[in-house]
């Protein structure tokens, strides 16, 4: 489903090498955990998949299309197929839970009626239907990450990317988020998760790809 083919990413002219000739194949419905220390290249690998950045060389094939070559105009369509969540949640603080999730549908042209049906459905999936009208600051960090997950799932993406999703969470919340991600994977969504949290790594049962200095040093 996703193929990183000899991907190298160098920031600046002759600068830092974030990824060094990385090759990685990910199958449909896989749960892949990218592990390694900070600066290993995990986040860069995820960012390249949503074309937040472009590699210095190599190609990334997603559903038979080279992401590196797609035009800027087609990036929004790509991002509707690939959801992403972050350590800092990236929620809009002035909007309620309902509005935050609905925002993802609204900005891509969904009708009010559709939004009204889909948002409660998504929030129910992440166990937050009862917090529909709450603002992010009224939620726990774990709940905020659940809202971010619900938003990432708004377009029913085939792939969900999670960049250190438990980085700001306590142990209990981290476990709950990991369980939720595994549940999403069980529903049929391919999940790629970057983490350096040992507790999370131990708990996860999926494929583990270990990175160091921009290279893949292990794949189990």
């Amino acid at each position: 489903m996703i193929t990183y083919d000899h991907i190298t990413k160098v920031y600046g002219r002759g600068g830092v090498t974030a990824l060094d000739d990385v090759c990685l194949d990910i199958k449909e419905k896989d749960f892949v955990v990218l592990i390694g220390p900070s600066g290993a290249g995990k986040t860069t690998l995820l960012k390249l998949l949503i074309k937040e950045d472009s590699p210095s060389s190599g190609s990334i094939i997603f559903k038979d299309e080279d992401i590196v070559k797609i035009s800027k105009r087609n990036v929004p369509q790509l991002r509707r197929n690939i959801g992403m969540i972050f350590q800092d949640f990236k929620l809009l603080q002035r909007q309620t839970v309902e509005e935050n999730v609905g925002f993802a549908l609204e900005v891509t042209g969904s009708q009010k009626k559709e939004i009204a049906e889909v948002v409660p459905f998504l929030l129910e999936k992440v166990g937050l239907l009862h917090r529909l009208k709450a603002f992010p600051h009224e939620l726990s960090t774990g709940e905020q990450q659940r809202v971010a997950i619900a938003r990432a799932l708004a377009h029913e993406p085939e792939v969900l990317l999670a960049d250190e999703p438990t980085g700001n969470l306590d142990r209990k919340n981290s476990e709950q988020i990991v369980e939720l991600l595994q549940q999403i994977n069980d529903w049929g969504t391919t999940v790629m998760m970057a983490t350096h949290d040992d507790l999370v790594i131990k708990k996860l049962k999926g494929r583990k790809v270990e990175m160091e200095n921009g290279k893949i040093v292990g794949d189990t």
Binding site: K72, V75, P76, R80, M84, K90, L92, Q93, V107, R151
Partner: peptide, 17 residues
């Protein structure tokens, strides 16, 4: 910027932004 970042993230078109 936060709204724009989220818009881009969830696939809003350039013109929509």
């Amino acid at each position: 910027s936060s709204e724009i970042e989220v818009m881009r993230l969830v696939g809003a078109g350039s013109w929509y932004i």
